[in-house]
Computed example of a mutant assay.
Amino acid sequence: MAAEQRAASARQETMPPTGYRLLLPSQWAQIPLRSGTEEAIERILQNAYARIPAEAPQDKIGPYKQELARRFRKAVAGAQERKGLDLYLPVRPVGDDGFNLGASILVTETVLPVRDFSAAQAPPSEIAVQLLTRDGAEEADLSSGEVDGALAVRREHVASATPDRGLEAASRRVEYIISVPGDSDRWFIAAFSTVGGGNPRDELSEALVEWFDAVMATFRWRHG
């Protein structure tokens, strides 16, 4: 029986994964973007409303709730427009001073188009770099390695503010693009973004980038 279980486990590990797992602090919430989105939004908003101080002026509470819901739904809608799988946001204040982190993690998946002969011969690492550099980010820091046994390329750069796209401030971004085991055309992408304390290269940004790298060290594929 033990031998059969090991054989079944080995077969399962060679098949494409059915999901993934990340370990995040309780201050962060997951918003699925393909199903169950509205339920997650309502749950998060209701929890946020419950933290409004009882002594808050009643004439301020209604507008505050409306603005909070508007901004939150805008962030979710933007992630859905980018064909995201999941969006992670810090929904509770951090620390004794109640500091709110300006950060997010967007999980997406990309499938390579039908490849010509030359692309089919390209090593996976080269394809990953091409995927990460296709939007023309300048001065990006690229490195490669493995995440849970799969090829991964990490890109870090600063994205300029683009007010016309709703991005009012520059942000520090770190992306992991990971080859999906058992399916060479699929790539998993986890993209972290933060405005830090107002400067994408300040100490808070540096600390959050290190934190995200630690989060990605907890990444595991799910099978079955």
Results as ranks from 00 to 15, higher is better:
Met1Tyr: 09
Gln5Arg: 03
Arg6Trp: 06
Ser9Gln: 12
Ser9Lys: 10
Ala10His: 12
Ala10Phe: 07
Ala10Asp: 15
Ala10Pro: 02
Met15Ser: 13
Gly19Val: 03
Leu22Arg: 01
Leu23Asn: 04
Leu24Cys: 05
Pro25Val: 04
Trp28Tyr: 00
Trp28Cys: 00
Trp28Phe: 01
Gln30Ile: 04
Ile31Tyr: 05
Ile31Val: 15
Leu33Glu: 03
Leu33Trp: 03
Leu33Val: 03
Arg34Phe: 11
Arg34Trp: 10
Ser35Phe: 02
Ser35Trp: 02
Glu38Asn: 10
Ile41Ala: 05
Gln46Lys: 10
Asn47Arg: 07
Ala48Phe: 02
Ala48Ile: 03
Tyr49Met: 08
Ile52Lys: 05
Ile52Ser: 03
Pro53Leu: 10
Pro53Cys: 06
Glu55Lys: 06
Glu55Leu: 06
Lys60Asp: 04
Gly62Ile: 11
Gly62Lys: 11
Pro63Ile: 08
Tyr64Lys: 07
Leu68Asp: 10
Ala69Phe: 04
Ala69Cys: 00
Arg70Thr: 12
Arg70His: 14
Arg70Pro: 05
Arg71Tyr: 06
Arg71Cys: 09
Arg71Gly: 15
Arg73Trp: 09
Lys74His: 13
Lys74Asp: 14
Gly84Trp: 05
Tyr88Ile: 01
Leu89Gly: 03
Pro90Ser: 11
Gly95Ala: 12
Gly95Phe: 08
Asp97Val: 12
Phe99Cys: 00
Phe99Pro: 00
Phe99Gly: 00
Asn100Gly: 03
Leu101Ala: 03
Gly102Arg: 12
Leu106Asp: 02
Val114Lys: 08
Val114Met: 05
Arg115Asn: 04
Ser118Ala: 15
Ala119Gly: 09
Ala120Met: 09
Ser125Val: 14
Ser125Ala: 15
Ile127His: 01
Ala128Glu: 11
Val129His: 14
Gln130Leu: 15
Thr133Gln: 13
Arg134Asn: 04
Arg134Asp: 01
Gly136Met: 03
Asp141Lys: 05
Ser143His: 01
Gly145Glu: 09
Gly145Thr: 14
Asp148Phe: 08
Gly149Asp: 07
Ala152Asp: 13
Arg154Tyr: 04
Arg155Ile: 02
His157Ala: 14
Ser160Val: 13
Pro163Ser: 09
Gly166Cys: 13
Leu167Cys: 01
Ala170Leu: 08
Arg173Ala: 02
Glu175His: 11
Ile177Trp: 05
Val180Ala: 05
Pro181Thr: 04
Asp183Arg: 07
Trp187Asn: 05
Ile189Gly: 09
Phe192His: 04
Thr194Ala: 02
Thr194Tyr: 01
Gly196Trp: 07
Gly196Thr: 13
Gly198Arg: 12
Asn199Ile: 02
Asn199Pro: 11
Pro200Val: 11
Glu203Met: 11
Ala207Glu: 14
Ala207Tyr: 06
Leu208Phe: 00
Asp213Pro: 08
Val215Phe: 01
Val215Leu: 03
Met216Phe: 03
Arg220Phe: 06
Trp221Ala: 14
Trp221Phe: 13
Arg222Tyr: 07
His223Tyr: 14
Gly224Gln: 15
Gly224Asn: 15
